[in-house]
Simulated scan of single mutants.
Amino acid sequence: MSTSSFAARLDVQKHFSSSILLWVRSDQPRQTGMAYWKSPHSGIISATPGMSEYRQLHLAEQNPGLWPVTDRVETSIPVGRKIDGVAEVTLQSVLSPLQGRKQTRLAYEDEVNVFRRTLLYAGLPNSSRWYDVAPRGAAVGARALVYLRRRDGVGGRTFRRYVNEQLVPALAGTGVLRELRTQTFLPWIEKLWDTPNVAHDNPDDQHFHASIVLGFADAAARDAFFKSPEVAELSDALAPFASAVHAYEVSEALTFVKDGVILPQYQQ
């Protein structure tokens, strides 16, 4: 069966999502910033109307890059651009940003208390996809977050088609995943999230064009996955389309809003 045929057989939910890449302030202990993000900053975001899901991905402090070394692909995460965490925001509709403008202003004002740099990546409606790759109720004990940078000369449509029709089924076909979520991004625009007193520097050669969340039974399964010959082969096939693949170890994945409901306590 071709990978495109396999992709058509995967059960998928399509969403309208964005990701905010976050770097905590460096003038205080990293853990202080990560704790403030978890609370009280999460309470401001969670109260935003029109939100279907709000999840924080806390990334491990030591993150040199999990993706295997691949010719012509940057797989080592540059220390100066290493992300501390990502806020995943999934909206109920394209009108949701209008509903949440007041609460978003509060988030703008609070960012300087915890972050030194923030970058928002957004996609079109239905460009965020959550795949059903595991039995219902199967626990996710470990995750990785992968960012892809499109290779120069590869068109956006070609890149998105490769991610959705070739890369996703190849990943799902490994049979070890318990979570698989992807986002493909529109071109990055600073004005979409131009918060005050926080840096938004993002050189053209540092832009990302897609993200993938991979869930596993446990950390051992995650480590085995990235060391497997299947991923090495997959990475060689990815090289003509991507110039960088940054795979982060996720230390915590915390859900604060689920199915449009603010949870009394975050879920891991």
Rank of each mutant, 00 (worst) to 15 (best):
P196Q: 09
A144C: 06
T184C: 13
E165C: 07
Q166P: 09
R116I: 05
P169T: 07
L22M: 13
W37V: 01
S46M: 00
P187L: 07
V89N: 00
R105S: 11
G50T: 09
L22V: 13
K82Q: 15
Q28I: 06
V231W: 05
P64L: 10
Y54S: 02
T32Y: 04
E88S: 03
N63E: 00
A232Q: 14
V231P: 02
T174S: 10
E74M: 14
D223M: 08
T182R: 08
Q62F: 06
R105V: 11
G100S: 02
S228R: 03
G173P: 03
F225H: 08
W130K: 12
G65M: 00
L91A: 02
E61I: 10
Q267N: 05
F185T: 03
T158S: 15
A237I: 03
T118W: 01
V257S: 01
R117E: 03
E109F: 09
G141M: 06
L234D: 01
A237K: 13
G80T: 09
V73P: 04
Q31H: 09
G141Q: 08
A107L: 08
R101Y: 08
L171Y: 08
V24K: 00
A221M: 04
Q166N: 13
V257I: 02
S243T: 15
G50R: 09
E233Q: 14
G173E: 07
E179R: 15
V154S: 14
Q92C: 04
G65N: 01
I44N: 05
I262N: 04
A47G: 12
D11N: 08
K82S: 11
A8F: 03
G156M: 11
D27P: 02
D201N: 09
D259P: 05
L10G: 01
Y147Q: 13
R81C: 10
P49Y: 07
Y266L: 09
A239F: 05
H200T: 13
A60N: 06
P125Y: 12
R129F: 01
L148E: 02
S93E: 03
W188R: 04
T104V: 15
K258Q: 12
D204P: 01
S2R: 10
Q99S: 10
T75C: 01
V231Y: 06
A247V: 02
A224Q: 13
L91R: 05
F115E: 02
V261D: 09
L124F: 05
Q56S: 10
S5C: 00
A239Q: 12
P64W: 10
S19E: 14
W193N: 14
R30Y: 03
F241R: 07
Q268F: 08
V89K: 00
K102P: 00
P64M: 11
V213E: 14
D201K: 12
